[in-house]
């Protein structure tokens, strides 16, 4: 038996059918093709599947899709808008805060939630806030610095974390820069 679920995902109304045993992660990825959220452990220990559910970051592997009835969901696919990267995305790129990239969507969603709650976090607050997200490649250094850098952007400091133009073609000449 499948259940009909109506949700809002990344600002748009989305309806889907699912079995009660299907996780939100499974439905987002397999039914709705929102494959930005990743499965790393499927039991809430790695954070790669982090999405926003009614304004709070959750592990979508630990949410049943049927629970999302009436919920507002945001995924990594909704962070950039109309070709403009979010400051966090831009800072992750400029700061080389990703290597293999599998944990990156989860980090971005969690970091965005963190900055919305605490726009000027200390290093320790960032580390505590992102402790639910595992990264095996970077040693976290550049991730923490990218979040710090994003918090310093004017956009991040204005309400709602508005977008700024993407600067994908820019080469950052940061010889010996402390990044």
């Amino acid at each position: 038996m499948k259940t009909h679920v109506t949700t809002t995902i990344n600002g748009g109304s989305v309806e889907f059918l699912c079995q009660p045993r299907q996780s939100l992660l499974e439905v987002l990825r397999d039914e709705l093709s929102l494959t930005g959220c990743k499965e790393g452990c499927n039991n809430g220990n790695c954070g790669a599947c982090t999405v926003m559910l009614d304004g709070l970051p959750v592990n979508s592997c630990l949410v049943l899709a049927v629970e999302a009835e009436g919920a507002v969901i945001e995924t990594v696919e909704g962070i950039a808008e109309q070709g403009h990267l979010h400051p966090l995305q831009q800072c992750f790129l400029e700061g080389a805060a990703l290597q293999c990239g599998i944990c990156t969507p989860g980090f971005l969603v969690a970091a965005k939630a963190l900055l919305e709650k605490n726009p000027q976090p200390s290093e320790q607050e960032i580390r505590f806030g992102l402790a639910g997200n595992l990264c095996r490649c970077t040693g976290y250094d550049k991730i923490v610095r990218a979040v710090q850098a994003a918090a310093q952007t004017p956009e991040a400091q204005s309400p709602g974390l508005s977008k700024r133009p993407g600067l994908l073609s820019r080469t950052t000449q940061t010889e010996a820069k402390s990044l």
Binding site: P57, N59, V63, L130, G132, N133
Partner: peptide, 9 residues
């Protein structure tokens, strides 16, 4: 209790 994602739920 868990990370932030766990505490939300």
């Amino acid at each position: 209790i868990g990370g932030w994602q766990i505490q939300s739920r």
